[in-house]
Each structure stands twice: as structure tokens, then as C-alpha cells.
Write a protein that binds this DNA or RNA. Structure first.
Lengths: 195, 195
DNA sequence: CTGTCACAGTACCGATCGGTACTGTCAGCC
DNA sequence: GGCTGACAGTACCGATCGGTACTGTGACAG
């Protein structure tokens, strides 16, 4: 099928990476073999091992690229120009609530990846960076809001985000996102001196 | 070694269950084989399969028993007699913060188990019940505090708990528990009409 | 003394895993 | 036309997986 495609190296690599992202997220790193990934990507194992020296490296590349995509998308969807005041921060919760409610969502792929590959310190570092980018985004959206301690507030809001992701995944109900938004609004109000 | 122990059926079962709990939590369900569990428990595979018809059933039994233990321990440590007023609720966060800060803690075993066994609906049900027991505890400790909407507040506090567990696991720092407690106190203050 | 039962130890089964090697076949370039 | 390189397809490797079968042994009951 479509044998005559021009052999575009980076396209093959991207196809393998996209397929791995979907399969690993769906069923977990340990439950999906490299054989299946290559077959589903329409590639051979030789191609897979040309671009990724091992399955562990494929997982790391997948998580790194996935984290990049998420934060680029999140920053774009919550661009400061679209809102002002506390709504600038709450827009983050709106976008995440919508994301968590999508069918097939079952947790943050980065967090799941850490659970899947418990012993890999590089995966742990990717996940730490992922959380810190959340903190950076929250602190940026908090800037200019005259809250007493933006750093602490950002960390509290991060707890709500990660908690909502877990609760939505386990409960199967999607209203945890709305709960998180309401809690975030209350924390914002409480942290603003002019309450 | 200690060959002459009286063959106590339930003791063997409990030994296998305890060993499985530790190994599964440490390295994940897929990374630990039944062979290793039996060997580490000082039992044979025949004994393991006498008490648990399959590895999946062993995982379910382990998670069920673990959930029971956690909630019995949590209810005891946060007994209402030990505090009054808002401190009755915040005591839950104190206990959990101490728990999350223990060396070797890397997430809730129930949540990790759901990630490990994504396709098992029985494990998902165990996890849902686990969360609902958290909600029951929080609502019980909120009783008599004259908050406007105890159900919503309990769900918001649950988000903080699960979020702190995830953030402690990924960040490796333990101050997420303290952040969660501060956020919980702020939400409590905001929800009490006599603010 | 003689069953019976729970048990540890071990060998084994088919399947699947991650990873390697080899073959044949296209496409583009000289 | 001949060369090169990326590619799919396949066979294969050793290891390990979940699960079963078998053997020997010690403790207890009759």
C-alpha cells in the first residue's frame, strides 16, 4: 500500500512517534510492544530502531515531544489577550476542563508515563520539567493581579489541576474540572488583598 | 529455612499478599512477575495460585485490601475527638502530608494500580470506591461546620489531596502537602459564611 | 504406622517480549 | 545503466512472561 511514497526520513520518524504516543497512552508502555508500534505506524522495526536506539528512548522522545505540544497548545489557548483580571488565570482551568472532558481522556500522559516507567530517572526529569512549565504559565497569568504570594498560589492551583486530572480519570465524571475552577476562583479571591 | 512452620493457610495467603503489595507498589504490576512474588514471599507458585486464581485477581485483592487499610488508618488518625472546628478537617491534610513525605512514597498505590491495569474495569471500580471513601471522610469531618455547600467543598478538598499526591511524587519535594493544607484552610475560610 | 493435606522446589509449556540480521524493492542521483 | 540509501517484510535470537504439572517432604489425625 502506497509503497511509492518518497522516503522522507523525518516523516517516518514522526509517524512512528505519533503512533507510539497514541498506543502508549491508550494501553500503557508495558502493554504495547515495539512490534505493534512499527506495524501500526506502517514501518518496520528496522526503521523504528534507526530513529530510536531503544524502546526506552522512544518513550522519552514521545514524552518530551508530548510535553512540548501540550504547553504550546495551552499557552496559545490561554493567551493573555483573550481575558483580563482573574479571568486570565481561570482561562487555564476552562481550557483544562474542556480537555479533561474529552472522550478517551484517562489522565495526563506524562504522569502516566512516570507510573509506567518507575525506574527511569530521565522520564522523571521530563515530568518535573512538565510541572514546572505549568507553574511558569500560572505565575505568568497571575502577574499583575496583586496577589500576596503568587508563587504559593501558583503551586496551589497546580494541585487543583493535577487533582482534577486524576479524579476525572478515576471517577469517569467530568465535573471535577468545574470543581477545580470554582476552587481556583475562591483561592484567587482569598489571595487578593482587596477582598 | 524455617521449614517446620505449622502450615497456616491464611498466614501464607497474607504473606503472599503483603509481598505483592510491596513489590507491585515499588516497581509496578507489569514489571513484577508472579515468580518473583512467590519467591520473595517464601512461597511456591502452587501456593500463590491456590489462593489467587490469576495474577489479575491477586492485583484486585491487593488493591482492595490496601484501600481498606488506608481508610481504616486514616479514619483512626483523624478521629474527630482529637480536634474541633476547622482543625477537624485540616487534620486529614496533616496526616496525609506526613504520609506523602515518607521516604519511598511515590503516589497512591490505588491510582498507580489503575494506570498499570488500564483495561481492568474491576480495578477501576475499586479506585472509584476508594475516592468515594475519601469524600465520605471529608464530608463527615465537615459536618457541623456550617459551610454553605459541604458536598462541593469536599470534592474540592479531594482535588487538593490527589493533586498533592501527584506533585509530591513527581517533584520529589514534600512541601506540596503543606501547600494543600494552606489551600484547604483558605477554601474552608471562604466557604464559612461567618467569614 | 498410615493416610492426608499444605507446602516448597522445580521443570516445563506456549506465548510474547526487546532487539538483531537478512532479503528484496523501490526512488533518486550520477 | 549502475550505485546508494531508505524502506517493508520476515525470520530469528535469548529471555521472560503467566500458568500448569509433578515430586518430595514435613506436620498432623486416625
Amino acid at each position: 500500500m502506497a509503497q511509492g511514497v518518497p522516503p522522507n526520513p523525518s516523516a517516518t520518524r514522526a509517524r512512528i512517534l505519533d503512533t507510539a504516543t497514541a498506543l502508549f497512552y491508550e494501553r500503557g508502555v508495558h502493554a504495547v510492544g515495539v512490534n505493534e508500534i512499527a506495524a501500526a505506524a506502517g514501518a518496520s522495526k528496522l526503521s523504528l530502531y534507526r530513529y530510536f536506539p531503544s524502546k526506552a528512548e522512544l518513550v522519552r522522545a514521545m514524552l518530551t515531544e508530548h510535553s512540548d505540544r501540550i504547553h504550546a497548545w495551552l499557552a496559545r489557548k490561554t493567551a493573555p489577550a483573550t481575558a483580563s483580571g482573574p479571568e486570565r488565570v481561570l482561562a487555564v482551568f476552562d481550557v483544562l476542563t474542556e480537555w479533561f472532558a474529552q472522550p478517551g481522556y484517562h489522565g495526563c500522559a506524562i504522569v502516566n508515563g512516570v507510573t509506567d516507567t518507575r525506574a527511569d530517572p530521565e522520564v522523571a526529569a521530563i515530568a518535573r520539567a512538565h510541572l514546572h512549565r505549568y507553574l511558569d504559565l500560572l505565575e505568568d497569568r497571575l502577574a499583575g493581579l496583586a496577589v500576596a504570594d503568587p508563587g504559593t498560589l501558583a503551586r496551589q492551583l497546580l494541585l487543583l489541576i493535577e487533582g482534577a486530572s486524576v479524579v476525572v480519570t478515576i471517577e469517569g465524571r467530568t465535573d471535577a474540572g468545574a470543581d477545580a475552577r470554582k476552587a481556583a476562583a475562591a483561592l484567587l479571591r482569598a489571595a487578593t488583598p482587596a477582598s
